[in-house]
Design a protein around this nucleic acid. Structure first.
Lengths: 371, 371
DNA sequence: TCCGTTCATGGGAGCGCTCCCAAAAAGGTC
DNA sequence: GACCTTTTTGGGAGCGCTCCCATGAACGGA
C-alpha cells in the first residue's frame, strides 16, 4: 500500500508525525512551522526521497512552473545551420536556471508541428511563451495573442508592434557595417539580405540603404536570401553575375557570409583586395572562416536572457500586480541590443552586458580584411 | 461562475447536455459513444474552445505526455558552436511531433543547473529521458539509472554499457577517414581529437590508430581538444609546433576542422598541397569552409530521431508489455549510425535513411582537397 | 410479450497537492 | 490563575480530470 509508486506528501506527513498541512508548509518555504516540526518533515522527505508531484501542484495552484520556447520557422535547416537559435536557448536557460522553471521546446516547422504547437500552448501547460523567428504572416502571432499567458517575442514580428518583445537594433547595426565599408573606400557595395518577410531581414536591408544613402552611393546591388547557406550561395553567385564589378558585400548573417566567401573564392575574387566582406551576428562563426570575417556582433545570448527576464517579470507582475520601481513606467516593451565594439582579434573577448533601452552602439570586429 | 478561467470538462458536458463521463469518452477517442452525443460534445468543445488540462489528466493517469532531453555538458559554448545539438533536437522533434509528446529541454552546464536538472528529472514530470553528451564520470548517469522512467543515451557513455543507447560507429568512421588520407599517399598524419573523457572522442581516436596501424604508419601525432573551436586552434598550433612536417590532419569534428583550417592558413600551409584535412560530422559546416572540407558525414538528425523512437518504444513497452516481432529478442540496445557516402559536391544530396543494427558503411565527401 | 444481451450513459471516487479555516497550543499580562 | 493574543497545527474542500461500476435503454430471439 505504501511504497507502491512515488511517495506522497501524506506519507511524508505520517512518517514525520505531523499533518499533511504542516508537511506542505515545510515544502513551500516553511513559514509558520515550529523548528521541531520543520526538522522532522525535512528528515522524512530525505528518507523517502520525496519529490512533490508537479501535476497535483499545478492542478491546485493553476501554475505550471514551465515556459515554452516556440520556434516557428518553416525551415528546419535554418535551425541547425544557424547558431542563433542555440545561442538564444543558452541565454534563456541561464535565466531560467535561477528560477526553477522548466523549458518546453516546440519547433513549428511543418503544419503538423504547427498544430501540435497550438495544442501545447493552449493546454495551460506553460505559464509563459517566448516566440522566435516569426515570419511575416505567421499564424502563430494570432495564436499567441489569444493565449491567456504572457508572450514575449524574440525579434519584432514584421508589420506589427506586439506589446512585449526583445530585439536588437538591426538597422543601426547594418548601417554601421556598411558605413565601415564606405569608410574604407569601397564604392560598389552589394548586399545579401535576410528573408524579407522577417523584420530582421528588412531592418538590416534598410540599414544598408541608410548607409549608402548618406554616402551618396547607389544601393541597387541587392540579392535576397533566407539565412540558409544554400540561399546565400545562390544570392552571391547572382550578385557576381549581375554586378561583376562589385567591390564589397554586406551579408546579413555570418553563416551566410561564410558560404558567400566560398563563392567569391571560387570565382577568383581575392578577399579583401578585390571584394570586402562584412557579416552580421556572432564572432564565433566569423573566426572559423578564411580569412576571418569582419562582422557586427550581436549579443544573441543576451537577447535570449533578456527575453526570459522580460517573460519572468511579466509572469510575476500578472498575479501580484506589484509595481517594480525600475520599470515604473510600465514594462519596457522594447529592448535594444547593443552591438559589440571589437577592434582587434576577439576570440577571447568577453561579451559586454546586454543593456536595455539605450541607443545602440554598434561596432565592428576588425580582421585582416582591412589590413 | 462559469467562464471564469479556462472551460472545464464539466462545462463542456453541460453545454452538450451529456454527463462528464461521456464528454471524457469523446475527448479520449470516443469509443462507446452514440453518434448523436459524440456530435454534441464536439460542438460544445468547439464552442468553448475547450482544451483539456494536462495537469488534471496527468494527476489521474500518472502520465505526463512529455519527455526530457538533458544535455549535460559542462561547456555551454559547445552547445552554441556545434550544430550537433541542434541537429539532434530536430531529429527528436520530428519523431515527437507524431506522438503529441512535449519536449522539455534541460541544459546541465553549471552546478546550479545540474541541481535543477536533477529535480526536474525526478519530479515525475516526464515519462522518459534522453541524455546527451555525457562525459566520463558524469553523476547524471547514476541519477538516470535510478530514475523510474526509461532512459536513452545519445552517444555511449564512456566506460559503461547502458541498457539503451544510440550511437554512431565513430571508430569505424574515423578509421575510414584516415584510411582515405593513407590511400591518397599521406605519410605523416596527425589528429586533433575530441575530449578524451567522452566515448566519441576516444572512439574516433581509436579509429585513427586503427587506420595508421594497418598501414604501418606511426600514430603519435596527436593533440587533444574538446570540440570547441578555441581548443582546436590551440591543438592545431601545437601539432604544427611539434610536427612541422605533418602532411595531413584528421580533425575529430568539422567545427574544429574549420578552426584548424584557419591556423593552417595562418602558418602558410597550402591546403591540400601541403596539408590534407579531413573532418568528421556534418556536410553543412564542411561546405562553408575554404576550401570545402572533406568530411565523414554522420547523420545526426537520424541519430536524434532514433533516440526518440527508442524511447517511445520503451515507454510503450513498459505498461503494455507487448512483444514487437521486429524486436523479438528484446529491445535493441545499440543502434549504429551509417555514415554517408558522398563522392562529389554534396550540398543537395539527400541523407540516406538511418539504419539500425547494420554494419556501418562509412564514406567520405570528396572536395577539391583531392583533386 | 418477456427476457437475456449488448451498448450507451451517469456519476461517485479519487489522483496528490494547496488553501483556508477552525481548533489547539503557547506566550504574555494583570 | 484567568484571560487575551499570537503562533502552530489538523484536516476538509476542491482543483479537473479519468476510471469504473451501476443503471438504463435498445435490441433481438423465443
Amino acid at each position: 500500500m505504501a511504497g507502491a509508486g512515488q511517495p506522497t506528501i501524506d506519507e511524508v506527513a505520517r512518517l514525520a508525525g505531523v499533518s499533511r498541512g504542516t508537511a506542505s508548509r515545510v515544502i513551500n518555504g516553511g513559514a509558520h512551522v515550529s523548528p521541531a516540526a520543520h526538522e522532522k518533515v525535512l528528515k522524512a522527505i530525505e528518507e523517502l526521497q520525496y519529490v512533490p508531484s508537479r501535476a497535483a501542484r499545478s492542478l491546485v495552484t493553476q501554475r505550471n512552473d514551465a515556459v515554452a520556447l516556440a520556434i516557428s520557422d518553416a525551415n528546419p535547416r535554418l535551425f541547425t545551420e544557424h547558431p542563433f537559435f542555440s545561442e538564444v536557448i543558452v541565454g534563456i536557460d541561464t535565466v531560467l536556471a535561477e528560477s526553477d522553471l522548466e523549458l518546453m521546446l516546440v519547433l513549428g516547422a511543418s503544419v503538423r508541428e504547427r498544430n501540435r504547437l497550438r495544442r501545447q500552448l493552449s493546454s495551460r501547460r506553460v505559464d509563459g511563451i517566448m516566440l522566435l523567428s516569426l515570419h511575416g504572416e505567421d499564424p502563430l502571432y494570432e495564436l499567441a495573442e489569444q493565449a491567456d499567458v504572457p508572450v514575449v517575442y524574440g525579434g519584432k514580428p514584421l508589420g506589427v508592434e506586439p506589446p512585449h518583445y526583445v530585439d536588437a537594433d538591426n538597422r543601426g547595426g547594418a548601417r554601421q557595417a556598411v558605413e565601415h565599408l564606405v569608410t574604407t573606400g569601397r564604392q560598389r557595395i552589394a548586399t545579401v539580405t535576410g528573408p524579407m518577410d522577417m523584420d530582421v531581414g528588412v531592418a538590416r536591408y534598410h540599414g544598408f540603404r541608410d548607409a549608402l544613402g548618406s554616402a551618396g552611393l547607389p544601393a541597387h546591388r541587392v540579392a535576397n536570401a533566407d539565412f540558409t547557406a544554400a540561399s546565400a550561395v545562390r544570392a552571391m553567385a547572382d550578385l557576381l553575375d549581375r554586378f561583376p564589378d562589385l567591390d564589397a558585400v554586406f551579408v546579413a548573417a555570418d553563416s551566410m557570409a561564410a558560404a558567400a566567401l566560398g563563392v567569391l573564392h571560387e570565382r577568383g575574387r581575392r578577399i579583401p583586395q578585390d571584394v570586402a566582406v562584412v557579416g552580421f551576428d556572432d564572432r564565433a562563426t566569423a573566426l572559423t572562416t578564411h580569412p576571418p570575417l569582419t562582422t557586427v556582433h550581436q549579443p544573441v545570448q543576451a537577447l535570449g536572457a533578456e527575453m526570459a527576464k522580460m517573460l519572468l517579470s511579466l509572469m510575476a507582475g500578472r498575479p501580484a500586480g506589484h509595481a517594480d520601481p525600475a520599470h515604473a513606467a510600465g514594462h519596457p516593451a522594447i529592448d535594444v541590443a547593443q552591438f559589440t565594439v571589437t577592434e582587434n582579434e576577439c576570440v577571447a573577448r568577453p561579451v559586454p552586458p546586454f543593456q536595455s533601452s539605450k541607443p545602440a552602439s554598434t561596432s565592428i570586429s576588425h580582421h585582416e580584411f582591412w589590413r
